[in-house]
Nucleic acid binder design. Sequence first.
DNA 1: TGTTATAGCTAATTATATTAGCTATTATAA
DNA 2: TTATAATAGCTAATATAATTAGCTATAACA
Lengths: 192, 192
Amino acid sequence: MKAGLSKTTIIEMAANIADERGIANVTLKVLAAELGVKSPSLYKHFNGGLDELNKELMLYGWHSLESKIITAAIGKAKDDAIMAVCYAYRNFAAEHKGLFEVMQWYNMYQSEEHLKATQGMVSVFFQVLDAYDLNEGQKVHIVRMFRGFLQGFSSIESHGGYGNPLSVNDSFDFALKTILNGIHDLQGEMER
Amino acid sequence: MKAGLSKTTIIEMAANIADERGIANVTLKVLAAELGVKSPSLYKHFNGGLDELNKELMLYGWHSLESKIITAAIGKAKDDAIMAVCYAYRNFAAEHKGLFEVMQWYNMYQSEEHLKATQGMVSVFFQVLDAYDLNEGQKVHIVRMFRGFLQGFSSIESHGGYGNPLSVNDSFDFALKTILNGIHDLQGEMER
DNA sequence: TGTTATAGCTAATTATATTAGCTATTATAA
DNA sequence: TTATAATAGCTAATATAATTAGCTATAACA
């Protein structure tokens, strides 16, 4: 009862380490040192050790992203809302490289927890799509396309995978407009 | 001089372990046991130890994917070629979950090696796009969109991230058609 | 046949995660 | 206020995997 740690402060420090020093440094050793305690002490907060910590970090990341995109969508509708949400996603990945990696990497083959974690974000997409004249199946396809594109694009970009000097921003805009056009076509040329 | 190992056989076994038992089991211990040797022996083939092995595994994966999509594109052109390439990518990810993971997650912050590794695949996309009337910038945007989408979609799908019962195949088709429409639209214009 | 190179070995070292059990501080109740 | 209980954090010990050092037997070859 000295350092006064809590799950939250530990997770936040872990997220910080992931972003600043890379996920390879998200270890109990580094984390404890950074928090000014010894590594066994962390087991008082995370019974499941490093594994549980990574899981919590993954959940924390998705929840953070969720609130970012919710905030971004406030006061916007249709294409504007979609653009805002997509940019918020991409910016989050850029600003939280390490955390974003943990969000995707942890729990690869145990999808239940992952599914739950991403549900919030998925809901936001569906809500935004409610403003369009689309059936449920179409919405599912569109949300899946956005999720796939955003995750892959953001991941490649933040790892420096797009080597060509051409503006990555322009490529992102191009892709979003392409998907938006697809949505417009489904509506039979209604107004955007 | 007994087991007669080579870099190739070791890498192939590592890829196999990644796919069958998950990347958490790609360790020198497991790998050596599987190959019938002791783990220090592997240093005779990989001076850099586990790190070098993972790098080689990543490169091996991208080269494998490259030849798969080249094969898929043979005798096809335009939309047919693109569809074939995209399906080949997605199938590869589905059939090599572990390897596909290593391809994305190894070497996160040292993009040079990653860039080189993906260059082959990128070239295939550019070649296929040569059949369309597009300028260089447009091609770059399109390839980036495909890469982002394919990586994210395949990754989410193969980790069971698309929970909705709706056919994932249909979503994939929907997305590809959406992007193809975008390409067709660009051909109508003179320039952008 | 003798020499050399080296794949694979054992033994030892390092690094991290984890467990066991102790202690001091904080919170709570008499 | 004092006694008691709960527990955050500690030290010491253990487990597991990576890695290094140095040895040895075999394959290749002069």
